[in-house]
Design a protein around this nucleic acid. Structure first.
Lengths: 245, 245
DNA sequence: GTAAAAATCAAACAGTCGTTTGATTTTTAC
DNA sequence: GTAAAAATCAAACGACTGTTTGATTTTTAC
């Protein structure tokens, strides 16, 4: 029978990938054993090394599987925006909405695996294991570079170091919000969500986006002492970014 | 000789605690072995279990050691603010500045161990190991409850669910920013810091606080569909929080 | 000084870890 | 149908895991 060609293969491979995403998310990379993973996926222990070589290789494949789609969408969205703007710089909110909004679309298309991957991605940014963050950075390098430049162009008056910091803050708020709602529940003791699935995620993104844009537009801090020259953008004195541009 | 009483004991205990904080931060809880830890601390392997019972017990002690000071300062600051306000609700910025500003003071007082602990604390909020987050939540419960109420009082017009979400976003941005600057460097390829020690941290906190307040003050998102009734604060219609109150 | 308590130590315990092997079964290609 | 390739399997490998033991040393208390 020829039509069953890749069915068995993909079945096994995909079951492993799905189980890996779930377990790495719930227990972390180091906290998940290959035996538990194989058991959860319903495959033989040796199958994991057969298909992915090593535990690290498996993790990379888990990430790459969805990360490629994310990268593509992010680049495509930015391309479209810049084409529509016709050479003029984008609004900061456009860049931020494109970057973080793409997460929403990823979750929409692939309802089950998509949201699991997103939460894993959020958690992965703080994973202690160095090779994971290194892999992520390498895999997403082009995308980051494009958005970085777009943000610089969108905020020509703001010192670049400040832009990078705010981008970092936004990454933190986003990854934390997406990765885990249980920490929120634990620490604040407040039940926060009710509705299910995509609708819930859509609300989360709307709330997150409002917060991120508010943070991005906030007035820059005034340090109690003069900044050393290398800390400013080229030729930029201290300044105050204006709200609600 | 009686004056050497607790010196040897504390030496050993503290060296273990210091090494544990460093290693748990750099490699995570699961990624750090007791042997590596004992070696780094320069003590016998069995000393760790002798002093702390288990690996979990050690982690809890690592956290508790500084967390108690943090809790105390947070409560004390809030007490002072509320006393000065004389029954009137605080400004939201006061609450946020008290909560996150206390981190700065903690880093100041105990220069070396303090910042290490703070970074560990930030990373711990996303640790997969459940008992760690559970311990943190239990240990910090009173503090969180006080600040939650203070925020509710400071923002009587804002639905409570929105306040909790924004608090969560702030926690994420803060823990991410404090825990790791290396992710930032890796992902953005941007070298961001130059000066050393406390001055560096003070700048970070100033930048962070500006971002957090901007996010907190942002207009609430408008959902594309009406909110179910239970999602609103008691008797609150939809509304727009005003900037720069 | 002496007995009790506290701390350190080398060694071992019972498991679990990621990975590999070689035989066996299933699928593919002609 | 048959040979090659791909996939699955039980079993084992050596290394590493957190923890415990019992002897030995150091510190405490009187």
């Amino acid at each position: 029978m020829s039509m069953a060609k890749s069915t068995t293969l993909k079945d096994s491979r995909d079951r492993i990938l799905d189980a890996a995403a779930r377990l790495f998310l719930a227990q972390g990379f180091e906290g998940t054993s290959m035996r538990q993973l194989a058991s959860e996926a319903g495959v033989n222990l040796a199958a994991t090394n057969y298909h992915f070589g090593s535990k690290e290789g498996l993790m990379q494949e888990v990430l790459r599987r969805h990360l490629d789609r994310l990268s593509e969408e992010r680049l495509r969205t930015l391309d479209a925006l810049e084409r529509a703007a016709g050479g003029k710089p984008l609004k900061p909110s456009q860049v931020v909405e494109a970057f973080f909004g793409s997460l929403l679309h990823l979750a929409d298309n692939d309802a089950e695996g998509g949201t699991t991957f997103l939460r894993l991605l959020g958690r992965t940014l703080t994973e202690p294991a160095g090779f994971i963050r290194a892999f992520l950075a390498e895999e997403h390098k082009d995308v980051i570079e494009r958005y970085r430049q777009a943000l610089f162009n969108a905020l020509p008056d703001v010192p670049r170091v400040e832009i990078v910091w705010r981008f970092n803050f936004m990454l933190g708020a986003a990854s934390y919000a997406i990765a885990g709602t249980d920490t929120l529940r634990l620490v604040t003791g407040w039940e926060v969500e009710e509705s299910d699935g995509g609708e819930r995620f859509e609300r989360l993104m709307a709330r997150l986006m409002a917060f991120l844009l508010g943070g991005l537009r906030a007035p820059l801090p005034e340090f109690p002492y003069p900044l050393p020259a290398k800390n400013r953008g080229p030729g930029q004195p201290e300044f105050d970014s204006r709200r609600g541009r």
